[in-house]
Amino acid sequence: MADQTHVQTPRRSINWGAIGDHTVLILGSLFMLVPLIMVVLTTTVPDVDIIKYGPQLKIGDQFDDNFEKAMFEASGFSGANTGMRMLFNSFVLGIGFALGKILIAMMAAYAIVYFRLRFATLAFWVIFTTLLLPLEVRILPSYEVVQQLGMLNTYQGLIIPLIASATATFFFRQFFRSVPEELVEAARIDGAGPVKFFIDILVPLSKTMIAAMFIIMFVFGWNQYLWPTMITTEEDMYTLVRGIKQITQTLEGTNVPEFGRANLLAVIAILPPVAVVIFFQSWFVKGLTESDK
């Protein structure tokens, strides 16, 4: 017995458990990754090749050509929905939505947490109830409201109704409540009023939280589909994600559908939010997992 244990030094033994773990993880990663890789590769080969062979694991030479078509050629009737235009609109929606939401949410959360307000609880519940009903279930009447306000095909019509939900308000309320009580007391004794406290202390303290919220809201805004589909009917207002529908429709019917162009637009629609999520991963994960507690 003693000899046997002596021979089996831990260094030599193969850790089957770890190999199993890695196998599962690699398979999982491939499952997530391969579809995108295939789509990316199709943007580099001639459209005819795709029809003949389908997506291949090879890199072709058509990327520049497809890029040119995707970004600067329009496919619609008015000629306004070039890739550049849609990319711009997507950024306006993503950034405008994120900034607007954070600003309004921080203000409201500040009022609810840091002021002696008789109807603070009422205000909280009025705001909070919006968490209950996603935009999707009240989409038609919301559309009518925007229509009546004459905000169809405008950026404000696109952005403001999306802000009417309390996710970020709730998140900042939770965060503000976790800020030590004594900080506002010390600041008051130090002679800081509500505005000073907010700007000098609370906003700098919330920097990470603001960043995390920005990432989540940017991705959320960028990825909006149903709402832009209804609100924007003019092609120069299309976002990339909204444009996907039109892109898929152009694949129908034609003899040689422009797969390269369409797929490249899809990749461009994916790229900015994915890049943000990957580069600011730790903030994003923190924001996501803490916002819903």
């Binding site: 609810i112 002021f115 007391e185 509500p194």
Partner: peptide, 23 residues
């Protein structure tokens, strides 16, 4: 609410207004 919240009356209303109007 914090124990030692500010007691200004008009400011919280101003702060809440945008959110409430949009909602």
């Amino acid at each position: 609410m914090k124990r030692a919240g500010f007691s200004t009356k008009w400011m919280p209303i101003m702060l809440l207004m945008p959110q409430l109007v949009i909602i």
